Computed example of a mutant assay.
Amino acid sequence: MDFGLFDLVQLLGALVVISFLLILLTAHLSASKMVGFRRHEKEKCFLTEEGKREEFPFLQTPHSRELTVVVPAYNEQLRLPVMMEEAMEYLENRQKQQSSFTYEVIVVDDGSKDKTTEVALGYTKMYGTSKVRVLTLVKNRGKGGAVMMGTLSSRGKLILMADADGATKFPDLEKVEAALQDINPKPENMAISCGSRAHLEKESVAQRSVFRTFLMYGFHFLVWFFCVRGIRDTQCGFKLFTREAALRTFSILHVERWAFDVELLYIAQCLKIPIAEVAVNWTEIEGSKLVPFWSWLQMGMDLVFIRLRYLTGVWRLQSREKAD
């Protein structure tokens, strides 16, 4: 039996349709309606410097600090002190210079197996719970889940997510703050300012292997094609939110692993929340939790699933009720 070009095209077309249906089915079956939104009883409280338990506030309540810094930390007992020393020095100096400036740092221990919580509590004892609080998650949720839980427990008018490795220098906060003001978040006070490493891309490419460079550009293409347009670096862990923008976006968030930044920005763009992107100083720190191939593969799958789940209505752009 002859097998012509037309038959081949039909076969390829059928394979494409079947593959798409399988991906769509997988996206539906693996979707969770409210991923990790409810918190364990132990996650509702923090320890004071005297060792007493007090409840965290909710993001829905009015702010009582000018700035909250949320630091997700998983097995970071070695790298966390370097970041905290720099952050606290900057924040304390700023408070001395600006008497009206108030802040808090929330270190979120994402189910670590080392002494991350003990190290973080050392800063609570040093500065008090008015300035440093530790949220210890019962089990590992992933970076997105840790940032979400810290954000939902914050008191700041502005909320900054900052990585525990200290790769971004803390004084760059002033750059992202200025960019936030430039996009004029009024009248609903909705705005997001993202630190960016895009200006360092040529230098980083020169230092990477061809394979890792291919993965990086492939990921950037998938981000652009499926989810977020106009933001060159979605993954930099230095992002500043107004309290209102944080509430609106984090109360919808589903992805708890590495691709959560993309979903956050996708939600923001869908809701027409203004987003700024500003260059920041960044240094690669040893000890990354990313596994080069498998982490990129997981993020790529997440990007496809994010778009499909919102397009098909499995996930909706609707805020959930108050966290329990």
Rank of each mutant, 00 (worst) to 15 (best):
Q10V: 05
V119D: 05
M161S: 12
F58Q: 03
G128T: 10
T151A: 09
K125R: 12
V223D: 02
L180F: 05
L15Q: 09
A206W: 10
S193P: 03
V70W: 05
S193M: 00
F101Q: 14
T124D: 01
H28W: 09
M299L: 11
V176C: 09
R141L: 13
V69L: 06
I275D: 05
G145Y: 12
S153V: 01
F6S: 12
L47T: 06
R133I: 00
K44I: 06
D110L: 13
V223M: 03
E174Q: 06
P62G: 04
Q181A: 09
K169M: 13
K113Q: 08
G122R: 10
R309D: 09
E201R: 15
K143W: 07
G13E: 05
N75D: 06
F46W: 00
L271F: 07
L25E: 04
L152Y: 03
G144I: 07
D7N: 12
L297N: 08
T151H: 04
D261F: 05
R38C: 11
T48D: 04
G230Q: 03
L271I: 02
V108Y: 08
Q95R: 15
V210R: 11
V205F: 04
L173S: 11
R197L: 11
W282A: 05
T129E: 09
E86Y: 13
F6A: 12
I285L: 12
K169H: 14
F37H: 10
L121P: 08
V119E: 13
P185D: 09
S100H: 05
P72G: 07
F58T: 02
N189Q: 13
M88P: 00
W282I: 06
L173N: 14
L271M: 15
R79M: 09
S99G: 12
Y217H: 00
L317R: 08
L11Y: 12
L12A: 11
I106L: 15
